[in-house]
Design a protein around this nucleic acid. Structure first.
Lengths: 358, 358
DNA sequence: CTGAAAGCGCTTACAG
DNA sequence: CTGAAAGCGCTTACAG
């Protein structure tokens, strides 16, 4: 008998001696089940919203879990059910717009009790590697904010039934759900604003080559210029989406004898770089000599130093719509891909002349 | 015998009939092992760098894996070995510096074949919730870039032996490894520059209340002013790290009869907001009327619109050092916490007057 | 509603 | 170097 193994009567000393340093790690369902005096299945169910479990059982389990400081292991959970991980593929780390976009994305994802695996596809990492990654972690869904669409990635996801939603890009060839603004319309809006203000020799400055944002906005812009009888226009590509790219492209634009009198930049950060080139490098005035309009409405656009006329993309709404759509696809894998277009609005500030009365 | 089961002689037709749609999903070690004709242990070893496995075996396994388009499941792997997930805790989504910092972090982490779980602790999410998260995904390590140090999180990580490295903040109370610049020295540097240029009534504009960056830079700055006999100085706090916070704090500073003649901002984005307040709201000239200096050297600091004198933090180096240190801690859990201080350099641009000859 | 048992896809001592 | 087997921590039919 156990009680006879001790020659001395129990004292308080024997009770207060350290319990083998109480190795706190490795609290799993097993420990919680033991503590609560229930089965491990019951513990699992208590932590699973849509599993049948009595209130009384939950009480017992949670009490034990709290006492033991238990946290379910998401990795183990992900093995049978979903990982609660959402992949965010990003390439545009130079455009400050993406910092607030990322803020919005992570917030929306966390509100749904999921978490963000941020994949940087801007540098060394090839799309093929990104595919590996997303697949290996069995993300529940993928958000693509890449400037150029990684079709291989999207195909791979769909082959594995991983829903993907594309943010901010049009995609005719892809069968994934897309949330973006009508970039052709945005281009037309810019053309109208410049022409209405009396500018006569507009230029377009693009970003990433072959990105749909650049091609669509350019198409809308130039198309509308021609429609309204403006035959004298310019085009140049910055290649990237940064202040410096905008600055350099602008200098290039003014490098020939034939110069523009207004510029539509594919985004605000390039427009800021461009404005500085115009004002400080070329010594011209904005908006008197040169009118400037961008797209996005980043924080800097309403700074006093730039006060940039721009076409506002409602990023927070777009992000929420994107996340919403992604979770719908996760819930119902049979849902068909759709194209969600959000409306943009013109924000007139001081980088363009006021429209002429007609 | 199988061949007798068919009444008709085999034709090409029977060979080309669809193989039950070839359900491609669920390729696991088992399938690869079968295809390669080896054990599943062998497959596992082939994919594990530090496991003994012959070249010949690897060839066989990889051939089979390629054929089947197999990808190891990181979630399952994480159950026994490490998750290859690194948590990045971030709060500062208004300061553009953090976009390039994030670019650098994700790049460095991906180069080490790990991936980034981005945790947004800026809004609704309490530190307690962040703790849950990090623990639940069993991240191999955690990087904290939070303005104020979430001591509870750090304690929780250490209780579970999860290494954590703190980026950009000093921390006397914490026992975690820290990578930051010498913020007190930075404050002194700013004070010297302003005094040397002949400014006599310097002000300090802080950011997040109680953040070590603000308190340390302020301490160094004011301390040095006093040391050099400057008795007339000002202090104000912006509360956040944004253009608008800098703008508003500056207006407040000039709201009384007693006004400063130069301002040291806790970071560049606030300095930009401040410069615009000075130039466009208050109608004063920079640097003639008011000298301005910031910290960070963000992209905007060297724009022509701001041309901001600043104290450059070598972010890319700091990030790489942080990731390096984190992986050292992961490799060797017995490693002691250390404080790594990186040197900053003064970048003189046009927002301050040139130093007076003495 | 609850428990026993099998299984998720991998890794890792343990023998050979 | 290789294979059989146990185990990582959870979930989920299947009975009761």
């Amino acid at each position: 008998m156990e009680s006879s193994s001790s020659a001395n009567p129990p004292t308080t000393d024997s009770k207060t001696e350290p319990k083998k340093a109480k190795v706190a790690d490795k609290i799993t369902v097993t420990e919680v089940a033991a503590e609560a005096g229930v089965s491990i299945s019951a513990v699992s169910r208590a932590f699973n919203p849509n599993a049948s479990c009595s209130e009384k059982m939950k009480q017992k389990v949670f009490a034990a879990a709290d006492k033991l400081d238990y946290r379910p292991n998401r990795l183990a959970r992900g093995l049978k059910s979903n990982s609660s991980l959402i992949g965010i593929l990003m390439t545009d780390f130079e455009n400050p717009a993406y910092l607030s976009i990322l803020d919005d994305f992570t917030t929306a994802i966390q509100q749904r009790n999921c978490h963000s695996l941020l994949i940087n596809a801007s540098q060394q990492m090839s799309i093929a590697e990104a595919v590996e990654l997303v697949m290996q972690y069995h993300v529940d869904g993928l958000i693509v904010t890449s400037a150029t669409l990684p079709q291989a990635l999207i195909d791979a996801c769909q082959a594995q039934n991983t829903p993907v939603v594309i943010f901010g890009r049009h995609s005719a060839e892809s069968i994934a759900t897309v949330v973006c603004s009508d970039n052709v319309a945005n281009g037309r809006m810019a053309a109208d604003l410049l022409l209405d203000a009396g500018y006569q020799r507009p230029a377009f400055v693009g970003g990433t080559v072959a990105a749909s944002t650049t091609t669509d906005r350019q198409r809308g812009f130039i198309g509308r210029l021609i429609e309204r009888g403006c035959e004298h226009w310019f085009c140049v590509e910055g290649g990237r989406h940064s202040y410096d790219a905008g600055f350099d492209a602008t200098c290039k634009l003014f490098n020939s004898a034939d110069k523009p009198d207004s510029i539509f930049y594919v985004d605000d950060i390039m427009a800021c770089g461009g404005m500085d080139a115009i004002r400080y490098e070329l010594g011209l005035r904005v908006p008197e000599d040169i009118g400037v309009i961008g797209v996005d409405d980043i924080r800097l656009a309403h700074s006093r130093a730039y006060s940039l006329t721009t076409i506002r993309q409602p990023f927070t709404d777009m992000v929420n719509t994107t996340v919403e759509a992604l979770f719908e696809h996760i819930q119902d894998p049979t849902l068909e891909a759709r194209q969600i277009t959000v409306p943009c609005s013109l924000i007139t500030r001081n980088s363009t002349r006021a429209a002429k009365k007609n």
